[in-house]
């Protein structure tokens, strides 16, 4: 089972004001809020953590059948590397492994229940207006769409 989530940073900027009072407190744990407040680029950290939570939730939701809005119950840990950002997201007794790609225009995270699976995931990202209309026929393992971007994983 795969998860993936893309955040169009341009759209996120106008769509969400995470500096709004109490906003971060509803979504992020104390540790995550510390990562944000100490980050060199806090905007990037907010959406990195958010895409990690979303991509892990997409697996959790399909696995358990539970549908809820409890972002704070998804706990992120980040293990930064030179060229890629790996992390884990834990919820209840499950842990999901994530790998994120931060670009100027977007942040994309893939998630899998087993760490080694991350290396086998094939990612395709389309920018509008070049979204293929028939992408569903290709049977992607997970679909994420935000703003200009459509991200498919196999």
């Amino acid at each position: 089972m795969l998860g993936n989530d893309i955040v169009d940073l341009g759209l996120a900027k106008i769509q969400s004001n995470w500096r709004r009072k109490n906003y971060l407190d509803k979504i992020f744990t104390a540790e995550e809020q510390l990562l944000i407040s100490s980050a060199k680029r806090p905007d990037e950290m907010v959406w990195l953590l958010w895409s990690m939570k979303e991509s892990a939730y997409k697996i959790y939701n399909r696995k358990t059948g539970i549908r809820n809005f409890a972002p704070k119950s998804l706990n992120c840990t980040i293990y930064p590397n030179i060229d890629q950002i790996k992390g884990t997201v834990s919820i209840d007794n499950d842990t999901y492994f994530t790998k994120s790609d931060i670009q100027l225009q977007y942040i994309h995270t893939i998630a899998a229940p087993v760490s080694s699976e991350l290396e086998e995931i094939k990612v395709t990202i389309y920018e509008s207006p070049n979204h293929p209309s028939d992408y569903k026929c290709t049977k992607p393992g997970c679909v994420s769409h935000h703003g200009q971007y459509l991200a498919l994983v196999y």
């Binding site: 996120a12 769509q15 969400s16 004001n17 709004r20 009072k21 109490n22 906003y23 509803k26 979504i27 958010w50 979303e54 809005f69 972002p71």
Partner: peptide, 9 residues
Amino acid sequence: SANLVDIVL
């Protein structure tokens, strides 16, 4: 989903 937080607030 990021706007669901705004709705709650």
